[in-house]
Structures are given as structure tokens and as C-alpha cells.
Design a protein around this nucleic acid. Structure first.
Lengths: 128, 128
DNA sequence: ATAAATGCAAAGCATTTGCAACCAT
DNA sequence: ATGGTTGCAAATGCTTTGCATTTAT
């Protein structure tokens, strides 16, 4: 791993992500960070989102095929994605490490992590 | 839903997907189908992959951010993705509908489906 | 006859990258 | 001084789309 220097841009990006639970896209993060660092470029946002993900500081979520969303919480947890409004919610339910044992047995894999997502309608969109 | 006419192209695409368990990309499907329908275009492959997914005949998997992979089995089942070689495997373990109840309780969502994926190393890549 | 499906090529669009300037250590 | 970081813009690369033509029903 490369030596990392700190940068204003990266710090603000991380702060923005830590202060929202909205699972924003790279572009949304860019817009927010611009308020504090007006001349930051989108490329820098992408580069730092990658670095922060690699460093285990944040989590990258790939839902629809278009763009990724980012989560300021890096520890494993589960998500719910609303089919109607597209919002992503963190779920308050325990992470079940046992599931990984079943996957190990199922195919002789070395399992290091898992991802569980639910889909449907959120309370706000329930009546559509 | 629109009326569907049958087309040679769509039939071959579905056949290719049903006869492999390799979770191919759109481009791989395109290359295979070309052997039987030499002048098919990539656009047609994409259009039909979409139609087949909407019709519930196949399943679209979004793993890495770049391209989607497709699975000829449409019923829910779980997957394992190797971090080293990138291959995706179907897991022979039961689908746990009960998980959806926990998500419902966790946030009052209407849950219609879920997705569970494991990551790590496959047997072939275990010694890296 | 009618509308769905196709091939082709152009367009879209999120993400990546090359490069010179800049800045943290 | 050294090399990680940035802004800018051009480039990528998967996927989508417009359009004239073909084809299934």
C-alpha cells in the first residue's frame, strides 16, 4: 500500500459521507463538497472515493447498473432499496456470519464476506 | 406489457444462457450467439437481455461496477463471487424467505425479494 | 397491414486517466 | 527534494437509442 498524505479534499469527502445516511452517488458528494472546496473536480471525488473504499473507511454499493452509491459506514450491514423512489436504507438487523458457513459448505469456497440486500417499497411509497 | 413476437435472435440468446452456468457478460453472449446468427448486432443482444430479464426468463446480476452478468436461472438463488478470478458461482443452498421478515420488522418495508452474495476465493484460486 | 424486432452507427453517460502544476511530509 | 494529490479535459467503455428496414403475426 502506498503512503497516503492527507488532503483537504479527501477529508471533506469523508466528512460528508460520515454525516449522511442517504447513500449518495459520487455526483451528490461532489456537489456537497463543492460548498466547502469550490474548485474541487469530479475526478478528485472519484479518486478519493476509491481510496477511501480501499482503505476500508467507506463502503461502495452497486445497485442499479448506472451509478454506485457510497455508505459512510464501513462495517458490514444490510440494506433495503425501494423500487419506487430508489432510496437506500440501512437495516437495523444483526449481521449473520453463520450464513458464510453455509456458503463454505455449499461449494468449498473461502468466504471472507457477504452482502445481503432487500428490495420492495419503503413506507413512503407503499401506496402506489 | 407489449405483445412479443418471437425472433431467432432472442431464442438463441436464451438458449445460450440456459446452456451455461458461467454467468456471462453481454459481450460474451454476443460472441456465442454470433456463431449461430453471424450478423446479429450487440445492440440486439442488449435489447433482448433486457426483454428476457423483464419477462422473468433470466436474471441480471450487477457485481463490479463495470458490466452486468446474466444468469439463465430466474428463480432466486444465491451467488459466490471469487475476488481473484472474478468468476461467479451459483450456490447450492436454500433460499431463506424468513430473512425478508426480519427486514420487514427492521424498518416497516414492503419486501418483495432479496439478494445474497458471498465473496472470497474459489477452490481454484485458494492458494494465492 | 401493422407493429415488433433488427442492424448499424451515433449518442449517452458514469467513471477513469494523462499530464502539468501543486503541496504535504 | 520526493512523490502523493489535484484540476482540467480528453478518453474509456459499457450500454442505450434513433432510424430505416426487415419480419412475425
Amino acid at each position: 500500500m502506498k503512503n497516503r498524505r492527507k488532503s483537504r479534499q479527501r477529508e471533506v469527502i469523508l466528512k460528508v459521507l460520515r454525516n449522511t445516511d442517504s447513500h449518495p452517488t459520487a455526483d451528490w458528494v461532489y456537489e456537497q463538497v463543492k460548498k466547502e472546496v469550490p474548485n474541487i473536480s469530479l475526478g478528485t471525488v472519484y479518486r478519493n472515493l476509491r481510496l477511501l473504499t480501499e482503505a476500508g473507511e467507506i463502503m461502495e454499493l452497486e445497485f442499479g447498473s448506472t451509478y454506485s452509491r457510497f455508505d459512510g459506514r464501513a462495517e458490514n450491514h444490510y440494506h433495503f432499496r425501494c423500487d419506487v423512489c430508489g432510496r437506500v436504507f440501512d437495516l437495523d438487523m444483526p449481521v449473520m456470519e453463520e450464513l458464510e458457513d453455509r456458503a463454505r459448505q455449499a461449494g468449498g469456497f473461502e468466504v471472507s464476506r457477504h452482502r445481503l440486500e432487500f428490495y420492495g417499497r419503503c413506507p413512503d411509497c407503499a401506496g402506489d
